[in-house]
Write a protein that binds this DNA or RNA. Structure first.
Lengths: 244, 244
DNA sequence: AGGAATGCTTGACTTAGATCAAGCTTTACT
DNA sequence: AGTAAAGCTTGATCTAAGTCAAGCATTCCT
């Protein structure tokens, strides 16, 4: 009813160097001139409404996206109507590398809540990667981190029992939030139980039971999507399968 | 005893344009001059003995490797001595992208059998990516394919029952062999049951039972590691969770 | 060639987690 | 505001797959 605010795909004027995420999503060591080039190539603060798709499988690869606020999930859908969630992308994360193989996206990317992204279109991407070495390296690093995240998830799905999967996930989110300057002790999960269960390869009921268990054990406190970590040590200790 | 052949890390003189894998591992559309540059940057036919490591976690990122013959498995090891196999790399595949995140390998890469690889060291890699656009694009495509493979495995581990996992795996190997000009009907699996079971997230015993089941159903014929696919259609039909 | 170790298969039994079912709470819609 | 629809939790039951155990086949080593 209120809303004089235009809220769909409207560019705003937040400059990259004022953006709190610049240190996360931009490669370091650009010259002033290079930074200007990068900035001018980026479309800023595009809004994706909750449940809308940032892109869908088979869409042409138009851009790489940086999540500024909100969150995105990527997933594969199967012919029989099931889905497998591949990743959750939070502020500071880059999305869109799945289309590198053949210039078409190979999965869906959907907003879990109203989300703002910055967008670097692929033409500019190619230009910048061609002419700026640190840009190329920064992107390689990002792709490598993406591969690393997926390896971690494979380990989770392949080796861990359900309780350990959840414990590892929560520890990961906590540490991630902390490293971004948010609270690692208390945070909201942006995704519904259904999505988290799918991501962690278990039934919703099992996930719910594991939340309850961790709460009964006094390790966390759960209030719907608000999680408080009471004992980070014990939570982390449940992750037996940490990488050597 | 015999062996006048030196068999360790000895360069041989197979030129890239004579290599049957060139069409697989090289980006298309290089000029003659660019191809020469690439060729001279590549160390050819380095032998990795069975069970030796091509690299280990935390090793510095020295090169990208192309499997010429033999096979490589990559894996994560956990503190409690478990491992999760992340991928099997067969002739024509590229290995080593796991070190993109921080110039150190994030997993182990071990030869399943005596294996020959070609090696493109990272200095040359950076040079070539900087100066040759099609080289850059080819590498991006390869990284994208790597991400796609991992997505597929996540779907397998997250959604499929054990029989379907094996069926999907065998169909994949079969199609891959076919597309490489080998037989899609009959082939040897390069990995022991133990490794395949780990990769597919199940116990060895379960894997063995699933092989037996598929054989009893007349879908495949199993003779240790030699697999013959009797009914590709029925095998593929067991993969309910194909991507939309 | 012989023995040890590794790899694979099959059977019997157990269990972690799925499924089914119900109720309760929060959010969304008109 | 009031109702419908999602979302979440807990309990009871069932089952796919894990574990334990044994035996045979193959490869490796001296």
């Amino acid at each position: 009813m209120s809303s004089s605010r235009i809220s769909t795909n409207k560019k705003t004027t937040v400059a990259c160097n004022n953006c709190s995420l610049s240190e996360l999503c931009l490669p370091r060591g650009l010259t002033k001139e290079e930074l200007t080039r990068l900035e001018s190539a980026i479309d800023k603060a595009i809004k994706i409404n909750k449940k809308d798709y940032l892109y869908r499988r088979d869409d042409p690869h138009q851009a790489i996206y940086a999540v500024k606020s909100g969150s995105i999930k990527t997933s594969l859908s199967t012919l029989d109507g099931e889905e497998q969630i591949l990743g959750f992308y939070l502020p500071g994360d880059l999305v869109g590398f799945d289309a590198f193989a053949n210039s078409k996206h190979s999965c869906d990317a959907q907003a879990l809540e109203d989300t703002f992204v910055c967008e670097l279109n692929m033409n500019s991407f190619h230009d910048l990667c061609g002419s700026i070495a640190s840009m190329r390296n920064g992107m390689m690093r990002q792709v490598g981190m993406e591969i690393g995240r997926e390896h971690q998830l494979l380990l989770t799905l392949g080796q861990m029992r359900t309780e350990e999967r959840l414990a590892t996930f929560l520890t990961g989110i906590s540490e991630r939030n902390q490293s971004r300057g948010f609270s690692g002790r208390e945070f909201y999960l942006p995704m519904p139980r259904h999505d988290l269960a799918n991501y962690l390869g278990m039934a919703v009921e099992t996930l719910s039971r594991m939340f309850s268990r961790l709460q009964e054990d006094g390790i966390i406190s759960v209030n719907h999507r608000l999680i408080e970590i009471l004992s980070p040590e014990r939570l982390k200790g449940l992750g037996h399968h940490q990488c050597r």
